[in-house]
């Protein structure tokens, strides 16, 4: 490398005063005797200084800062609100009343939501889904977002979990609710379909994480079956039907319902949609 080439490589650091003493001595000696390199250097330095003096720095306009703070407070409020199904969605209200008539003890639980806590051991997804289903029926867990179709939940789930949320439209569904939760640092998605015959709950998690089994686990039988066939229909839970399936090798879904297993599987067998 000749002197000019070497000097050219030093220009940017020289402009920013970053050269070591040795390099700086070399650099200064060279531009002393080489007008071409000197001009290159001076032009860069002049440009840098000129731009810096010309660009005015602004403070955020008050109205803009205010709006952002308000938007965040709205977000905070929506996280804090244990959303009342009654005020949020009139259709859901009708459905709830209908359910009370059917004898579900919804309302009592809805009115006094208990404080929820974290646990730390890895939980079996299958057991967890059944427990959650009961909690949904009891109103202890409530959807944060409601819609007449799954499309209305798309925005709610968007970019908030690290796996695609499966939003399958279901025929005859009266309304659908969704809520996100966090379990030992894992993001989870929950959907509730209100069907004429009752509630269908779908619990969704990141398949990679479930397979690792650190936070949420599955029996070996379920993992093998899901990996090989994409489905797992278990016979041992006689209280409810539980059907698991895999979406796109990314999302593992667990549906719980009081309907027949075959019926439940059928409900989710056709082509699924992601957000």
């Amino acid at each position: 490398m000749n002197e000019c080439q070497k000097t050219q490589q030093y220009i940017t650091d020289a402009v920013d005063n970053r050269l070591s003493e040795v390099d700086r001595n070399f650099f200064e000696e060279h531009i002393e005797k080489c007008p071409s390199c000197r001009n290159d250097f001076e032009l860069d330095a002049l440009t840098k200084d000129f731009v810096k003096t010309k660009i005015t720095r602004h403070t955020t306009p008050d109205s803009v800062a205010m709006r952002i703070k308000q938007e965040i407070e709205k977000q905070v409020a929506s996280e804090q609100r244990t959303t009342s199904i009654f005020t949020r969605y009139p259709l859901a209200r009708a459905a709830m009343i209908a359910m009370v008539v059917f004898g579900a003890a919804f309302i009592i639980y809805l009115l006094n939501s208990p404080d929820l806590q974290n646990t730390v051991q890895a939980a079996n997804m299958m057991d967890q889904s059944i427990e959650n289903y009961d909690l949904f029926l009891a109103g202890t867990i409530q959807p944060q977002q409601f819609g007449q179709s799954v499309d209305e939940l798309r925005e709610y789930f968007r970019e908030r979990v690290d796996f695609p949320v499966v939003l399958k439209p279901v025929k005859e569904c009266e309304w659908v609710g969704g809520v996100l939760s966090d379990y030992n640092g894992l993001s989870l998605a929950h959907l509730v379909y209100k069907m004429p015959t009752g509630i269908v709950y779908v619990y969704q998690a990141n398949w990679k994480e479930v397979r690792k089994g650190n936070k949420i686990s599955l029996s070996n039988g379920a993992i093998t079956s899901l990996s090989q066939t994409g489905w797992y229909v278990n016979g041992s839970h006689d209280k409810y039907s539980v059907v698991m399936w895999l979406y796109n090798n990314e999302t593992v879904c667990t549906a719980v319902s009081s309907m027949e297993k075959s019926e439940l599987k059928e409900m989710f067998s056709t082509e699924t949609q992601k957000y």
Binding site: E79, T119, S181
Partner: peptide
Amino acid sequence: MLFASPTNN
């Protein structure tokens, strides 16, 4: 309880 976070004020 298995469920947490979004509603924990």
